[in-house]
């Protein structure tokens, strides 16, 4: 567990990236950290380019944007091109349902969207990805993410999101 993480979550509007960033941030706050979450998007709320950034630090976060990411999640080819193609030294997570598979020691390609569909809702792909990212990097504890899900959702929706989170964690544990 590092003192500071800078994370980019990029894809298109409607994929739940900003919610994903918020939940990651909330989990980090539960662990006593400082968080800044920012977003960038165009005028289209669905289908347009969308990016969330999260910075987690033990100390005060002065500049609010990511300068050098410690990990990237890319859910579209465009996001992969812009935010991940330049890096070989940080974990890059991407969705093989939506992107072409590629080779690289730092690349973690999983069919997040297909797995989410099999769980019953494609909207949970973001939670599967978050589970995988946390398992690889130790970014936040899975238990913290579970608490955040339970706060935000209730009943079956909460259960489905927790199931998605755990299936993401399992991708790495296996």
């Amino acid at each position: 567990m590092k003192d500071r993480y800078e994370i980019i979550l990029a894809g298109s509007g409607g994929q739940g990236l900003i919610v994903c960033g918020m939940m990651l941030g909330e989990a980090a706050i539960l662990e006593g950290k400082n968080v800044v979450q920012t977003q960038s998007y165009g005028i289209a709320s669905r289908g347009g380019f969308s990016k969330a950034e999260v910075i987690i630090d033990k100390e005060e976060i002065i500049y609010q944007q990511v300068i050098k990411p410690d990990m990237v999640l890319a859910l579209t080819e465009e996001a992969m091109e812009i935010y991940a193609s330049g890096y070989s030294d940080i974990p890059v997570f991407y969705d093989t349902t939506l992107l072409e598979a590629r080779e690289g020691d730092n690349l973690y390609g999983f069919p997040f969207t297909e797995m989410a569909r099999n769980l019953g809702h494609t909207g949970t792909a973001n939670m599967i990805a978050l589970g995988a990212m946390s398992a690889v990097t130790g970014l936040v504890k899975v238990a913290s993410l579970e608490s955040v899900i339970k706060k935000r959702f209730s009943g079956k929706v909460a259960d489905m999101n927790i199931m998605a989170l755990c299936s993401g964690v399992d991708l790495i544990a296996k």
Partner: peptide, 8 residues
């Protein structure tokens, strides 16, 4: 920036 930023 500040309007859409989230912080503790």
């Amino acid at each position: 920036i500040v309007a859409h930023m989230r912080e503790n």
